[in-house]
């Protein structure tokens, strides 16, 4: 029994997040009538599927020890590009989707290539990417573009019943497919294992003969793909392209990943935890809506605080690990003047 528990301790952060979600949902159910319903639970997925998709891409980036600040802007660019191609150029939806996804991948690969080939810090390149993509939105159009395309309208209004009268939207299905694909890629493919290896120790990964350079570029390509897909899903909600969409969403995506138990230092974590991260995020949002008097900006503050809390937890876990590893030397008073 004890051995079994110690294996599970690797999943401890994820379990912690699951517990947090259950507690928050319970508090909501006890405080507000109508909170506890199957539909309200499904709404968490319906309202946040774009964030789930962003989170999956971001999980890979963070596991590899990198960071991608451009996701919110790439999402916005993807909403602009798809709405402009649909409404102004009257392209076929089946052509628009691949083109938009390709544009996202291209942006991601571009950033990944610069980061990898020239050994530059990911945050500065993706920060530049953030402003680049945001600016490209305005190149497409300064104004909001509404989408009246039938395919998009259908996708936006479709409701599929799952349990009785409770429904999900196509976005949820897309989100679920991305999560399953993400779990599969991270656990069962060469690419996925290399991502973990890079995050654990890049030098070792290179010495092991893993294709580190190629994988690092591909990680940012994957994140770009997820951002573009999330953008398309986002237009299913808003039925419009707007250049200010997804402002600050990079923080939301990073938050869901961190809350989901992925270590910011890389190497540890998983796609599945991110799902719980999104659930926690969504619950905070509904709690604030149900509460009624707080303005929606409190969500941002609450999320910032949660990220802080989880980073703190991660540090505690890490220092414990280091403490355990170094215990034999602990008697030597190696304290330095700081």
């Amino acid at each position: 029994m004890k051995a079994r528990f110690s294996i599970n301790s690797r999943n401890l952060p994820t379990l912690f997040t699951l517990g947090l979600f259950v507690i928050m949902f319970a508090v909501g159910s006890l405080s507000f009538p109508g909170f506890l319903s199957p539909q309200n639970f499904l709404n968490l997925f319906i309202d946040n599927s774009y964030l789930l998709i962003l989170g999956v891409g971001m999980t890979f980036v963070i596991i590899s020890g990198g960071i991608d600040l451009s996701v919110g802007s790439v999402l916005a660019f993807s909403t602009m590009l798809s709405s402009s191609l649909l409404e102004k150029s009257h392209w076929d939806p089946l052509l628009v989707i691949p083109v938009v996804l390709l544009a996202g991948v291209a942006l991601g690969l571009f950033m990944g290539y610069i980061i990898q080939a020239f050994d530059l810090p990911p945050f500065i390149i993706t920060l530049a990417g953030l402003y680049l993509a945001r600016g490209l939105c305005y190149v497409v159009s300064i104004d909001t573009i509404g989408i009246s395309n039938q395919f998009w309208q259908d996708a936006a209004h479709a409701q599929w019943n799952v349990i009785g009268q409770n429904f999900i939207s196509p976005s949820v299905v897309i989100g679920a497919v991305v999560v399953i694909a993400g779990v599969f890629i991270s656990r069962s493919t060469k690419f996925g294992r290399t991502v973990y290896a890079i995050g654990g120790n890049e030098q070792s990964a290179i010495l092991m003969g893993l294709p580190v350079a190629r994988t690092k570029v591909m990680i940012y390509g994957l994140s770009g793909f997820c951002s573009a897909l999330a953008g398309i899903v986002f237009t299913f909600y808003t039925l419009s392209g707007y250049a200010l969409n997804g402002k600050g969403m990079e923080m939301d995506a990073i938050a869901t990943v961190v809350i989901g138990g992925t270590l910011l230092t890389g190497g540890v974590g998983g796609v599945f935890g991110t799902v719980f991260g999104v659930l926690v995020y969504g619950t905070i949002q509904i709690l604030i809506v149900f509460q009624g008097t707080l303005n929606s900006w409190w969500t941002r503050i609450a999320i910032g605080f949660l990220v802080f809390l989880f980073c703190l937890l991660q540090r505690v876990f890490e220092s414990r690990k280091v403490g355990k590893a170094k215990k034999p030397e602990a008697k030597v008073p190696a304290k330095s003047p700081s």
Binding site: D119, A128, Y131, G135, L136, I142
Partner: peptide, 25 residues
């Protein structure tokens, strides 16, 4: 040029400057 698009130029300059600071480049 509208101020919003000026961001693109600033972002590109950041990219170029970062490249110039990279030893590999």
């Amino acid at each position: 040029v509208p101020p919003e698009i000026a961001q693109v130029v600033i972002a590109l300059v950041v990219l170029v400057i970062s490249l110039l600071q990279s030893g590999k480049f």
